[in-house]
Amino acid sequence: MSSEFNSSDLAVEAHGLVKNFGTNRAVDGVDLAVPAGSVYGFLGPNGAGKTTTIRLLATLLRPDAGQASVFGHDVVREAGKVRHLIGVTGQYASVDEDLTARENLILFGCLQGLSRSTAKERADQLLEEFTLTDAASRALKKFSGGMRRRLDLAVSLISVPPLVFLDEPTTGLDPRTRNQMWDTIRSLVARGVTILLTTQYLDEADQLADRIAVIDRGAVVAEGTASELKASVGNSTMELHLNDHDEAELAAEIVGLALGVRAKAHHGGLVTAPLSDPGTVFMPLEALHEHSIAIASVAVAQPTLDEVFLTITGHSAQDADELQEIAA
């Protein structure tokens, strides 16, 4: 589907965007070039300026300096046109709390120029598509976090916009609902929607985004594909928990030998080893099996956002401490 697009088309272009709140410079000279049909991720901790940048691009705020355009239309001078081309899904579901899901979809359909009957049809289509039909007339207060996000996204898609802003689409969702949201996002991309999303999770940016901008203190400090970014961050770490804590020293030796690195034994039967290629994780496991050393759990720790920040900016982000469990 993306073949319909001219690859040189930019969905979003920004030069030197600046936004001040009082004395606080929330966005400090952001440059962006987001190709149409791609997923672009803003990665950064809370307060880095991700949301403010999105609000500038979505015409919700006026920049104090700099210039930005959406599909060639200036976000300040041609805000009315830009609003025809975007869908915005906020960090907190921005739907009307007092209306039902169906009423919300009809309301926002009508406000986007659909006739009442078309708005109703469209509402039913979207409820069906986002599996909200059963909850269509239920009070929003009874909605789960995942349902709220789905409704919010459905509302953003009423006018089938070619560019969708997703501000922290999965923050606060449980892993299962998060995976569902990821699939929803992927299916939008497959249909040719350009997506600009913000996230605090390296893993999420890695899973979804074609390109990632790391944002810190209002500025883009690194930009590139997920693998480029990871390469700059360095290795993953393998973590092994043993059933018998006394075997840690021996296990460390075996693991080190199998990987050709120095493995360390810690308290409580924990063994860690740097892992340059996650594909080699089976080698120390086989070696331990041959020596009949029982393993309680194995995990490969991804480079965390903290490590990304430490490497790129020299200071740490508070968030993110995620271990990806491979097996238990």
Binding site: A79, H84, L85, V160, P162, R191, T194
Partner: peptide, 24 residues
């Protein structure tokens, strides 16, 4: 479960640069 593969709803994405829109 999440998105029914009903292509009619969202398949018609018109590229942003091709759309004729009025800001007024």
């Amino acid at each position: 479960e999440n998105i029914k593969t009903d292509k009619t709803v969202l398949s018609a994405i018109t590229p942003g640069t091709v759309r004729t829109i009025s800001g007024a």
